[in-house]
C-alpha cells in the first residue's frame, strides 16, 4: 500500500459555537487532483486553510509528507512546535487565494521571487531568472514589472499561481481561484491550472466550476455542514450522485 502525500485525520474546527468541520478525513496521493465541492458555508475554505495550518484544527491532525503540521514527532510523542517550525512546514504547500493576495507593494516578478529569496535563501539573480521563467510559463511574459494594481484579475491570479509554484511545493491548494474573476478571465486561469495538473502537480482545488472538476479532477469530494458527504471519481459523484443533498446541489448548479 502506498502512503498518501497529504492526509487530514479527523479534523474538527469550531468558531465560537459554530462547529465548522466535524471530524473530516481526507487523503490525497502524489500527483492527484482533488476538487472540493459544496454549498457556501460548508467549511471548504476552512478545511483548505487547515491543510497549510493557516487555521489550527481544534482536534485531529494534518500530515504532509512525513510532517504533522504544528507538531514535532519525537519518540512516539507529538509536541506542539514553534512558530518558526510551522513556517518551515508550510513550505511543502503552496496556496492560491480567492482574492489573489498579491503583495501590493511588489511587482509581479518580485512577488514570485519573494519566497525563494526570503524563505529559501536563493540568490536574487537565480531567483529572478526562475521567476521570469514561471511568469512566462503562465503566459505573463509582458508583465514582469507590472504592479498588482496594473494587472487584470486573471493576470493577478496567474501571478499568484506562479508565486505558489516558485516554492516548489509538494501540494498546491486553490481556494475558489476563479470566483473573483469576470467570466472571460476564468478560462485563462483554469487553463493554467489544467496544464499544471497535466504536468503532474498534486492539487486540492475548492471550486464551483463543475466543468473543470469533471474534466481535470481525479477525485471529487462533496462537503456539506462540515462533513464529507460523498467522494469518488467525477463521473460517479457529479453525474450519478447518491446522496440526496449532493443531488439537490448539483441539480441547482449544473
Amino acid at each position: 500500500m502506498t502512503t498518501s502525500l497529504l492526509e487530514a485525520v479527523q479534523v474538527s474546527k469550531r468558531f465560537g459555537q459554530n462547529q465548522v468541520l466535524k471530524s473530516v478525513s481526507l487523503s490525497v496521493g502524489r500527483g492527484e487532483v482533488v476538487c472540493l465541492l459544496g454549498p457556501s458555508g460548508s467549511g471548504k475554505t476552512t478545511l483548505l486553510r487547515c491543510l497549510n495550518h493557516l487555521e489550527r484544527p481544534d482536534e485531529g491532525f494534518v500530515r504532509v509528507g512525513d510532517e504533522v503540521l504544528g507538531y514535532r514527532q519525537a519518540g512516539g510523542v507529538l509536541r506542539e512546535t514553534s512558530e518558526r517550525d510551522i513556517a518551515r512546514q508550510r513550505r511543502s504547500t503552496g496556496m492560491v487565494f480567492q482574492q489573489f493576495n498579491l503583495f501590493a507593494h511588489r511587482t509581479a516578478i518580485e512577488n514570485v521571487m519573494e519566497g525563494p529569496t526570503q524563505v529559501k535563501g536563493v540568490d536574487r539573480a537565480r531567483a529572478r531568472q526562475r521567476a521570469g521563467a514561471l511568469l512566462d510559463h503562465v503566459g505573463l511574459s509582458e508583465k514582469h514589472n507590472a504592479y498588482p494594481n496594473q494587472l487584470s484579475g486573471g493576470q493577478q491570479q496567474r501571478v499568484a499561481i506562479a508565486r505558489a509554484m516558485a516554492m516548489e511545493p509538494d501540494v498546491l491548494l486553490f481556494d475558489e481561484p476563479t470566483s473573483a474573476l469576470d467570466p472571460e478571465l476564468v478560462l485563462e486561469v483554469l487553463e493554467t491550472m489544467k496544464s499544471l495538473a497535466l504536468e503532474g502537480a498534486t492539487m486540492v482545488v475548492v471550486t464551483h466550476e463543475i466543468g473543470f472538476a469533471r474534466e481535470v479532477a481525479d477525485r471529487v469530494v462533496f462537503m456539506a455542514d462540515g462533513q464529507i458527504l460523498e467522494e469518488g471519481e467525477p463521473s460517479s459523484v457529479i453525474d450519478a450522485p447518491e446522496h440526496p443533498r449532493v443531488k439537490e446541489f448539483l441539480s441547482r448548479v449544473l
Binding site: N52, L54, F97, N101, H105, E114, G115, V119, R163
Partner: peptide, 26 residues
Amino acid sequence: PTGQREAGAAIGMTSSKVFRRIVFPQ
C-alpha cells in the same frame, strides 16, 4: 489587509519576516 499576511505565511515566512517584508512597508 490580513490577506497580505496570510499570503506571506503561506509561502513559509515567519511572522517577523512577514512584518518586516510586507506589513511594515505597506
